[in-house]
Amino acid sequence: MKIKECIMLAIDSSTSKSGIAIFKNGAYQESSLLDCTNFKNMEDRFKEMSLKLIHILDKYKPYIIYIEETVVNRNVAVQRFLTRLQGVIYGYCVLNDCEFNTIRPTSWRKLAGINQKGKKRDDLKKLAINAVYQRLGIIVGDDEAEAILIGIAALELYKQRTPV
């Protein structure tokens, strides 16, 4: 009997560029960037980002998804975009018996070992890029780095829940 692979997808969502990281059986496999910067209209960008995410979900058929929780900010349009995008992903999970999880930025950074005290957003992005390079020896942009670290943080959560 062949044992099915456990595929986890980690997502750092954004209104223009979303980072995606794929893990198989707890090991990092690959990452990619969904770039929708060529769409100026927010509705067109949302549709394109949704379609790209659905394509990734259909391609990899994950069993577990972790996505960065949306943080309330001053820009209502961005908040609406990211919340709706989570809804697209959640709908996929409901239809495909896939575990859906959100994780706050402060939580995944802590679990990934990033010292965030007193750091600004741009500094945190640089730290994420460096953390991925230190752990995996690969150079990626900030969106992919954050997606990878969300996945690493999710794996840490599973380790903490599993008795030894």
Rank of each mutant, 00 (worst) to 15 (best):
K125H: 05
G113I: 01
Y133T: 10
E144Q: 13
K17S: 09
Q86P: 02
K2I: 02
E68Q: 14
L136A: 07
Q116M: 08
G87F: 07
K117T: 12
L111P: 03
Y158S: 04
E146G: 14
K52G: 04
G91F: 14
I56Y: 10
K159H: 04
A128K: 00
M49P: 04
L149C: 03
H55D: 15
K126S: 14
A10W: 01
A131E: 14
V164L: 11
K119A: 05
A77M: 12
Y90M: 14
I22K: 06
R80F: 07
R45I: 04
Q86L: 06
A131F: 06
R121E: 12
K24R: 08
E48Q: 14
A131M: 15
L155S: 01
Q86N: 13
A112V: 03
E68D: 13
Q134S: 13
R135G: 02
D97I: 14
M1Y: 11
F81I: 02
R45D: 03
G141P: 09
I150H: 09
E30V: 01
R135N: 11
S107P: 01
G137W: 11
I56V: 15
I129Q: 15
E5T: 09
V132M: 10
M8G: 04
S31D: 12
E146F: 12
A147V: 10
Q116P: 00
D35V: 09
N115M: 09
H55S: 14
E48M: 14
I129P: 12
Q86H: 13
E146N: 15
L124E: 03
V72E: 03
S16D: 12
V140C: 11
V164M: 07
Y133G: 10
E99L: 15
I114P: 11
K159A: 09
D142M: 11
I152C: 12
K159N: 05
Y158P: 00
D44P: 08
R74L: 06
G87I: 06
F46H: 06
N38T: 05
Y28I: 02
H55K: 15
T162A: 05
I152G: 06
K119C: 08
I103P: 03
